[in-house]
Simulated assay, not measured.
Amino acid sequence: MLVAVVALLVAGTGIVLIPRDSGTPPVLSFSETARLEALEDALLLRESATTLVASAAPGAGTAGPGNTVTLLTTHAQALLDPHNDGTSSPSAAPAGSAHTVSATPGNRATFLAGLAGSGWKRLEDAREADGGIARLLAAVGSAQVLEAERLAALWQLPLPEKATAVGPKAPAATPSTASCPSASPTPEPGSATTDTALAAVVRTQQEAIYVYQVALKRLDETKSAAAFKHLEGHEVLLRQAESFTSANCADVPASVPGYRLPPQFSQDPAGFLGTVELASLPRFGDLVALSTESTRSWAIENLLAAARRSLAWDAPLPALPGLVLEAGQLPPLPTPGSSKATASTLPLGG
Rank of each mutant, 00 (worst) to 15 (best):
P336L: 02
G167M: 04
A143Y: 02
L348F: 04
E242L: 10
A341W: 07
S280Q: 10
Q156W: 00
L198P: 04
A312P: 02
E32Q: 14
A327V: 06
L154A: 13
V201S: 10
R127Q: 15
A312S: 15
L219A: 08
H230W: 01
A38M: 03
T345Y: 05
C180H: 06
G285T: 07
A95E: 14
L216K: 06
G258N: 12
T73E: 14
K223E: 07
K217F: 11
R20T: 11
D286E: 05
T33D: 03
A183K: 15
G258M: 08
A7W: 09
L159E: 00
A227K: 01
G119V: 04
A54G: 00
D41I: 00
A208V: 07
L159F: 06
A197F: 13
L8A: 15
T194D: 13
F272I: 00
P168I: 09
T222G: 05
Q77A: 11
V214N: 01
D41Y: 00
A148C: 03
G350M: 07
S89T: 09
L198W: 10
E235V: 09
A250S: 15
T295E: 09
P82L: 00
T194F: 11
T186N: 13
E242Q: 15
T70N: 14
R218S: 14
E128G: 05
A178P: 02
A305R: 12
E32G: 03
A247Q: 06
I300N: 03
A165V: 01
D125V: 03
R308T: 15
E128S: 13
L281H: 03
A153L: 04
A103D: 12
D251M: 09
E188I: 10
P331D: 01
S31R: 02
G285K: 05
T275Q: 13
A341C: 14
A270L: 08
G59P: 10
G131S: 13
T33S: 07
L304D: 00
G131D: 13
G322F: 05
P316T: 07
W155F: 11
